[in-house]
């Protein structure tokens, strides 16, 4: 459907741009030229109006704040729109340039760094993952080797099984794994922050953009932060049942021990058990389990520590429960997809 622009059409576009030039003479010239064009050529006049409409879109969106009752907001709208656009374009640019690099290097990347190469293309990688759940959806699957895998909502992963390796790339979300014993083929989970190697055991892995959280329920695994072929910045560590660790590519920290049996049954019953956990983290987890957005001030919510058991498959009720326990908290639900959480001082 690509149509070649006529010279006159290109000229018209140039004049439109010059309507807002800095030089007043240039502006006047452009105005006159466009006026003349409109008089002389009705067909081109229509095409010119079409060109201007794209600018109108930009002007309209920056002039109209969604809640115009607040004059302060109207003033900030251009900045908000501009930031949104820049962030989106940046993301888009990133995923595109990585796709470009990936093609020629695909072969050796796949051989050397299976997890890393694919992981970098997220979030498009999430969209095209082998197995994926969306907000509010749970899934149970049995892998080819007999291992059981339970996916929490908003989870995405790829499965690479060969004769000598069992590999999973966890791109987003949280999974419970009951790994089938196979001494010949180690079971390896790759995340953005490192890898977890198991023989036959049960554990829960959760990834965020910044770190990976491993909760051991039975037996042991070995955690290696960082990527296999790059310099490992933190030493590998063996994690045993009842232990919980959080790691990023260069750091691994031990969290307080947990009760394995209770944690496992809570996971299976879609319950969130937290102990002295910042409210911001709790809200982030609830966010993964429901479609739409929860808006909150993460910095202020970090100060509040929560100890609770919350139903993850009924996030409305979970929010109600939080409200009941923290009287300074108010939850406003504007639609099913738009919830704000505030603290009153």
């Amino acid at each position: 459907m690509k149509n070649k622009h006529t010279a006159l059409h290109v000229q018209a576009a140039e004049w439109i741009v010059k309507l807002t030039a800095d030089d007043p003479d240039e502006r006047a010239q452009a105005r006159a030229a466009l006026a003349q064009l409109t008089l002389e050529n009705t067909q081109q006049a229509e095409a010119t109006a079409r060109l201007e409409r794209f600018i109108n879109l930009a002007e309209r969106v920056s002039a109209s704040a969604p809640s115009s009752a607040e004059p302060a907001q109207a003033g900030q709208q251009p900045a908000i729109v501009a930031n949104t656009l820049r962030q989106y374009l940046h993301l888009h640019q990133q995923s595109r340039s990585l796709a470009k690099i990936r093609k020629p290097l695909m072969l050796w990347l796949l051989m050397l760094l299976p997890a890393w190469g694919l992981m970098q293309t997220a979030p498009l990688a999430v969209l095209f993952a082998d197995v994926r759940t969306t907000a509010g959806v749970y899934d149970n699957q049995q892998l080819k080797d007999g291992s059981q895998i339970r996916l929490n909502p908003s989870t995405a992963l790829n499965v690479h099984f060969t004769a000598s390796q069992r590999e999973i790339e966890l791109l987003a979300g949280e999974v419970y794994l009951d790994v089938a014993k196979d001494k010949q083929r180690p079971f390896v989970i790759h995340t953005r922050q490192g890898q977890i190697q198991a023989l036959g055991t049960r554990f829960i892995v959760r990834v965020t953009p910044d770190d990976t959280l491993l909760t051991m329920l039975e037996s042991r695994t070995q955690v290696t932060p960082g990527w296999p072929t790059l310099k490992t910045l933190a030493a590998p560590q063996v994690v045993s049942a009842g232990q919980m660790v959080r790691f990023s590519a260069d750091k691994l920290s031990n969290l307080p021990d947990i009760h394995a049996g209770m944690t496992e049954s809570a996971f299976k019953q879609h319950r969130l058990v937290v102990q002295n956990t910042p409210l911001s983290e709790v809200l982030e987890t609830l966010q993964q389990h429901r479609p739409g957005v929860i808006l909150y001030d993460a910095k202020a919510m970090k100060q509040i520590l929560v100890t609770a058991v919350l139903p993850l498959d009924d996030t409305d009720r979970a929010l109600d429960l939080l409200c009941e326990n923290f009287t300074s908290l108010t939850v406003s639900q504007y639609s099913r997809f738009f919830v704000t959480v505030n603290i009153q001082h």
Binding site: S64, S67, A69, I80
Partner: peptide
């Protein structure tokens, strides 16, 4: 999600919540 985040970041919480239609219009234009 970027727009809503940006909105939340730029505005203090005391502003009234925008209507769903107005939000949708802005988001579609972006």
């Amino acid at each position: 999600s970027l727009y809503l985040n940006e909105l939340a970041y730029q505005l203090a919480h005391e502003t009234p919540a925008p209507s769903a239609e107005a939000l949708l219009m802005v988001i579609e234009t972006i």
